[in-house]
Design a protein around this nucleic acid. Sequence first.
DNA 1: TAGTGTAACGAAAACGTTTGCGGTTAATAT
DNA 2: ATATTAACCGCAAACGTTTTCGTTACACTA
Lengths: 344, 344
Amino acid sequence: MKEVTLKDIAQILGISVTTVSKALKGYKDVSPETRKSVMMLAENLNYKPNTVALNLKNRETRTIGLIIPAIVHNFFSSVMHGIIAEAEKNGYLVIILQSNESSELEKKQIELLIDKRVDGILMSIVDITAEHEHIKKIIDKEIPLVLFDQVIDEIECSKVTIDDQRAAYNAVSTLIKNGNKKIVHLRGPENSINAKWRCEGYEKALNDHGITADPSLIYVCDGYSIEDGKEFAEKALNDHPDADAIFCITDLVAVGAIAHLNERGIKIPEQISVMGFSNSPIASIISPSLSSVDQPATQMGKESASLLIEEIAKRKEKESISHYQVQLPTNIIERESTLTKVLN
Amino acid sequence: MKEVTLKDIAQILGISVTTVSKALKGYKDVSPETRKSVMMLAENLNYKPNTVALNLKNRETRTIGLIIPAIVHNFFSSVMHGIIAEAEKNGYLVIILQSNESSELEKKQIELLIDKRVDGILMSIVDITAEHEHIKKIIDKEIPLVLFDQVIDEIECSKVTIDDQRAAYNAVSTLIKNGNKKIVHLRGPENSINAKWRCEGYEKALNDHGITADPSLIYVCDGYSIEDGKEFAEKALNDHPDADAIFCITDLVAVGAIAHLNERGIKIPEQISVMGFSNSPIASIISPSLSSVDQPATQMGKESASLLIEEIAKRKEKESISHYQVQLPTNIIERESTLTKVLN
DNA sequence: TAGTGTAACGAAAACGTTTGCGGTTAATAT
DNA sequence: ATATTAACCGCAAACGTTTTCGTTACACTA
């Protein structure tokens, strides 16, 4: 059951390993007859070059590493999908690791990938406020790196994101356009750059439409969870019974908010409109269906992988490399939860 | 930026590579002083053994391959999660590939993993009616293989599944217990072994409760999708207006069925009960909330990975290997969609 | 006949490890 | 003084490739 090697072929044919290798790789200094017999034998024995040996020789593994905060998560699954597809198309395989919302774990996963000698690393940063020396280490080791979704300026590399601020701006503008004025924002935690940008977009939209932003309308959901949505929707409505819309950092939070409103018998969107973020599958399933910001997750994956692979290739050819900041377009998907109040 | 090697350390210290290696690996034939200086220098230079070289030497890659039908899918995400966690705990990394519902692609992915020389392969078979010579090839090459979720008898290897027949049996029994008699089954396609078992469980439950199974109550959903659920729920209700329950092959199909029932103004569960399968997150979000069969997906992943890694270890030690068929327990989660009709 | 050219092949080094074995030195035993 | 032993070290082969540089043998030219 041993795998057949060049040596096996050489021995059978009574020639040297060198010649066998050359014959297979199309070198010109091997006679047509030798070449033919080598080719045929290789075919018959189903010879496959040993990838590991090639990895050692070529100093590349044709493997890229991916670190994501959570695997069981629609957005990240979709990103993964894009990455794996793009990688495979270019002859790369993907090793996936989970940082699980922990900066410590993230550091460990980076070490694992470096030790594994992946050709490049793709990641979404788990906590932008934590130390990121471990990320700089990737750069220092000259391992190509592309950040997506959650990125930070301090790291010199290509980045793929959406324009969170503009997306939130558009979402809130839609709410305003539909007749809402007192808009609650259930935002994400401080250590998320997305949360920060989205909150700024929310404030900017209010200002641009002549509504003065009221900080007391902003609540911080640390967990992005349905429970958070329920809890803070309740709190918000107790504090501001006259609120007419809720803009949520993510669909799950919105689902929680909707659940709470339903429980309380508050009509959506007649009394309160709800806007989510990410356009995950639940958005169209829940009742009332949830308006949301569509995020091109799969494309984000593809784009990130493409950028990374390009950089790997350029480094190999010793070409000069430049970094890109790609921002993917988003779309507001309007559903029942934000139907205009004017019509009612 | 070159990685530091044993040779570097040897040169600096003026000793041989052999001695450096031995010092680091704790061989006894190296003097305490030499050992100490080697250790210190290795520490200072941050020496990390070259994994690729070790892979070549040891004929192992400490990598396992995973092939799943679809990445963006709650069940498979959860399985992945379990696999990755268990693998990492044992010093293995995971390469993930998608067979995308195509037996052809599945074959290609297997080739990729074999070429990559993974130490073992984990997969859920995409189509049990298709040729599976490509899967036998894994066995022939003596590469450890563990099948999960969708498995077939013809392949000699360890397998991890749930007891689909019993799970379906319990689900349908619950429906019957709650007062339902004319139960529609939206089943999966013929090429899915799960669908076959679940359908048999459905029939057995009916029989055991004195209800004669009516084949015209069974509909085949090829795509497991919401659309399928809508389409076949409609068809079923047109054919059998007096049906009082629907047992669905999967939660998504159930969601489609519920959507159709809601549209039609049919009350759930008063007029028709709905039972799903998998207990995905949407089950508790949708309204009415969906009763479903809870499948321990993460544990399935852990168990599969554990079995695979064990087999890898045994082969390495030339121990005799035996294969296991693990069946994980399931649970019926009763929610609003199947509240008992007797109480109404 | 000596010199030049060319076609075909192989030796060896390299990628970075590990490990069996042999060799050298010094210390101990007879 | 000689023999035995132990402690310490390094050579070389091995894992499977690729590629540079020789080497050989032969044919052709002057």
